[in-house]
Design a protein around this nucleic acid. Sequence first.
DNA 1: AAAAAAAGTTGAACCCATTCACGTTTGCAG
DNA 2: CTGCAAACGTGAATGGGTTCAACTTTTTTT
Lengths: 207, 207
Amino acid sequence: MAGLREKQKADREKRILQAAVTRFRADGYRSVRIEDLAEAAEVSVGTVYNYYTTKGDILIATVAMEVEEVLEEGAALVAAPPHGAEKALLALIFGYYDHSLNYLSKEMWRRAMALSIEAPSTPNGRRYAELDRRLEAQVAEMIGVLQARGEVRGDVDPEPLGRVVFDTLNQAFIGFVSDEAMTLTTLRSNVRATIRTLAHLISTEAA
Amino acid sequence: MAGLREKQKADREKRILQAAVTRFRADGYRSVRIEDLAEAAEVSVGTVYNYYTTKGDILIATVAMEVEEVLEEGAALVAAPPHGAEKALLALIFGYYDHSLNYLSKEMWRRAMALSIEAPSTPNGRRYAELDRRLEAQVAEMIGVLQARGEVRGDVDPEPLGRVVFDTLNQAFIGFVSDEAMTLTTLRSNVRATIRTLAHLISTEAA
DNA sequence: AAAAAAAGTTGAACCCATTCACGTTTGCAG
DNA sequence: CTGCAAACGTGAATGGGTTCAACTTTTTTT
């Protein structure tokens, strides 16, 4: 299991990914050449391609790290959401947003999203789609919890609703990364307006 | 106005766009080289770049043609929507969908959408975003009409609701073009499920 | 109508992501 | 410990979008 070869492989992969996270953020995804990464990771260009099938693949790997963390934080929130549909949904969504620039720049997000649309059937595309699916499921799960608590109308199915909420937060996020000047504060405020309307519709009449 | 130079310019641009629509659909966006388009349009590679700043730009021009037509058809529907929120919204959305493959293949849509996300601040990206904005506004407009007719609850703002509906139909469409095997029938049925839930929430209680 | 300016065309050169034929290292059998 | 096979690393070559300096054509000026 832990032969020399295995160890070297793990080492090289880690060095490449590390170089990618650093350089992509520092110099921008586009302007980093594979040759730069190879140099920083002390391997050859060919070797980079031995570990990642495309440049975009390296990016997806870093996005995946980010989203995995976000999902974990989200799970904690879903276990005990704040009271009220609006507050609870916004807490979850803002958690996603606030975390989103930890490892990734807006440019990196744009490229990653573009990639997932453009090449959905590649391993990378599938991987990104899978992350989206899990985020969507988490939103639906939270709606289910709120429903069980009697804070959301019982006559709606959490699954399509989760999709609607996810599509909304996702599209707002695309708007955010598409505009270099937009702050997280503005993003939050944009999405709050939309979610408020939705929350109003699905809340039990108590409001 | 109609000097020789103007005429030649219009001619060349039309030939390039025509070549693009034809070749992109026939051979796939990716496998068509700029040199191919240049040859088909009887100009040089450099001239193609004189009319369109990137390959993606040529694509956006064809997408724009398609969406302009769709908006026109949509306007007719908005003027006199079918009765009931669900029916009316679905009629509008299905109109969009049914038209979508007239000039464009799924691959072309994927690339165009990816482009709009990846390069939102280029003229092309802006242009695509503008088309999205107009589609969204049209959905909101229809909701407004339904509200005026008393078929949609008066206590909701059509604008955020239009955004939610648009985000939903857009995301479903992305799912459609991401899966070469998916039929329009399946797309319709997917979106029907989600829109039904939304329509249920916003309809006047009469239901 | 000749000359100069303006506008547009051209295709070879450039840049990079990606590939691939070849060399090197590791694991393992004898 | 030796030698072979498999796995892996290497970097020069390839392909295609994009750029740009030189050349043509159209328009304007005199």
